[in-house]
Amino acid sequence: MSDEPLLTVTGLSVSLPTGRTTSVQAVRDVNLTVRAGERVGIVGESGSGKSVSVRAIAGLLPQSPRVRVGGSIRFRDVEMVGAPSRTWDGIRSKRVGMVFQDPSSFLNPTMRVGRQVREALQRGRSDDHSWAATHRFMELAGLDGAAELARRFPFELSGGMRQRILIAIALAKAPELVIADEPTTALDATVQRRVLRSLDTSVSELQTALLLITHDLGVVAGLCDRVYVMYRGEIVEEGTTEQIFDDPRHDYTRDLLRCVRSLSDDGPELYTGTYGGGRS
């Protein structure tokens, strides 16, 4: 892991419209960093602002004058707040890979999944090498029999397999950072473990930084070096994973920890906790 900041977010604020003339401050004064090769988790219940924050970081909020993003988002030495579309496109196409919770919304239903992974590869490969690399990234994402699976369409795969295709697409860019936003929410517990184990293995092998967004502290316990806890649009606590688990300072963090159903020392086997506090 490098000490060099890969992503630096300072004073991030996001205001979203709620009606014709009304808006809500969804995110307030968020500060976070991700270093090269580091794994960072953002945890909080639904509505805490974590997904809005990460979509702002990835430049994926709706393009509207009423969507206001303030503060600073720097990817290495490039300031992204207020940057033109071509700058965002360049970052997302080559340097940042993204995995979201509903793969059906991000996979082309009319295109075979192998071709979708292959299109994410860096240009300049020969045809034979690009297919070999396609199969390698699919296998790295935990998909056995990649050559045969590559010929299938998304509807022919299970939800867990589609999610691992998204992981393969994200990794095929050879990104410096992978952003995973609730990547296993719609999957059952057994498939969650398999998908998260695949993500764990693949980012480790490629030495890619990871920014993981989840409602589940059990997940970040197995994957992350550091954790940010969000509540009502703000970061209420941050620290190493060990600090957050051994000595939580904020009441909300303690509530989240009480809802982690089971923990072990087996890394990716941790993924069984669910937050259900639902504060109002």
Rank of each mutant, 00 (worst) to 15 (best):
M1A: 15
S2C: 14
E4W: 01
P5S: 08
T10H: 01
L12S: 06
T18A: 10
G19D: 12
T21D: 13
V27S: 00
L32V: 01
A36V: 10
A36G: 13
G37H: 15
G41V: 03
G41C: 04
I42W: 04
G49Y: 02
K50Y: 07
K50E: 06
V52S: 02
V54S: 11
V54T: 14
I57M: 05
A58W: 00
L60H: 08
P65T: 13
R68L: 11
G70H: 10
S72I: 04
S72R: 15
R76A: 02
E79V: 04
V81P: 00
V81M: 02
R86H: 14
G90C: 00
R95H: 14
M98I: 11
N108A: 14
T110W: 11
T110K: 13
R112W: 09
V113E: 06
L121W: 06
R125Q: 13
S126L: 15
D127P: 01
D128I: 06
T134I: 07
H135L: 06
D144C: 15
D144E: 15
A150R: 03
L157M: 06
S158H: 08
G160H: 00
M161T: 13
I165N: 07
I167R: 01
A168G: 02
I169D: 02
I169F: 04
V178Q: 01
D181S: 02
T184F: 07
T184L: 05
T185I: 09
L187R: 09
D188Y: 09
R194F: 14
R197G: 14
S198H: 07
Q207R: 15
L211T: 08
L212R: 00
T214N: 07
D216V: 03
G218R: 09
C224T: 11
C224H: 06
R226F: 06
R232V: 03
R232A: 12
E237S: 06
E237P: 05
E238C: 11
Q243Y: 09
R249T: 14
R254V: 07
R258I: 13
C259Q: 07
V260L: 13
V260S: 08
S264C: 08
